[in-house]
Computed example of a mutant assay.
Amino acid sequence: MTNSSNSAKFSHTIQVQAEDIDLLGHVNNVVYLRWVQEVATAHWHYAATENLKKLYLWVVLRHEIDYLRPAFLTDQIQGFTWVGEHQGAKFDRFVTLYRAGSEQLLASAKTTWCLLDATTLRPKRIDQDILAIL
């Protein structure tokens, strides 16, 4: 599922919270999906200018996620993200979630995002100004 390029990865750290833990004593699967979106959003907020953030919005069209290992309350999570192929208004984004300070891959995801014009809320072709920062 992951199509990585080490030089183009963005990193974001997440601390597991008590409310993330399910009845089995580990992080609930739905939380991993929230983290995937959190890492992707952090990347956009880091990379985009204030003007780009006013002009464009992103929506998710599809998530694929593989759960590999459980995370626990005491864990800190290191998320990495990078973008893949784009076509028109859509592109693929990859996210990997690791136990921070280790090489233990907890989950990997591929999501398809669509760029929207913030005013019209209509899909907007991904132009070079967006590609240059991602």
Rank of each mutant, 00 (worst) to 15 (best):
Y32V: 11
W35K: 05
W35V: 08
V36S: 01
Q37C: 00
Q37G: 01
E38K: 07
A42N: 07
A42I: 11
A42R: 07
H43G: 10
H43Q: 05
H43D: 01
H45K: 09
H45F: 12
Y46P: 02
Y46E: 15
A47C: 06
A47K: 08
A47N: 09
A48L: 06
A48P: 01
T49L: 07
E50P: 04
E50Y: 05
E50G: 08
L52Y: 12
K53Y: 13
K54R: 13
K54G: 10
K54W: 10
K54C: 14
L55S: 05
L55D: 09
L55K: 03
Y56R: 05
Y56L: 04
L57M: 06
L57N: 01
L57S: 08
V59T: 12
V60W: 14
V60H: 00
L61R: 13
L61C: 13
L61T: 12
L61Y: 15
R62V: 15
R62C: 14
H63S: 15
H63N: 10
H63P: 03
E64T: 14
E64V: 10
I65C: 12
I65H: 13
D66K: 02
D66T: 03
D66M: 02
L68Y: 15
R69I: 05
R69Y: 08
A71H: 07
A71R: 00
L73I: 15
T74D: 07
D75V: 10
I77Y: 06
I77Q: 00
Q78C: 09
Q78E: 05
Q78M: 14
G79R: 03
F80R: 04
T81N: 14
T81Y: 00
W82T: 11
W82R: 00
W82H: 12
W82G: 05
V83T: 10
G84W: 07
G84Y: 02
G84H: 06
E85N: 13
E85K: 09
Q87G: 11
Q87R: 15
Q87L: 02
Q87A: 11
A89E: 00
K90F: 07
K90H: 10
F91S: 05
F91E: 11
F91M: 13
D92M: 13
D92F: 01
R93T: 08
R93Y: 12
R93S: 01
R93L: 11
R93W: 08
V95H: 08
T96M: 06
T96V: 10
L97M: 06
L97Y: 07
Y98I: 08
R99Q: 04
R99M: 00
R99S: 03
A100L: 03
Q104K: 12
Q104H: 15
L106Y: 05
L106T: 00
L106H: 04
A107S: 03
S108D: 15
S108K: 07
A109P: 01
A109H: 09
K110P: 03
K110V: 14
T111I: 06
T112V: 04
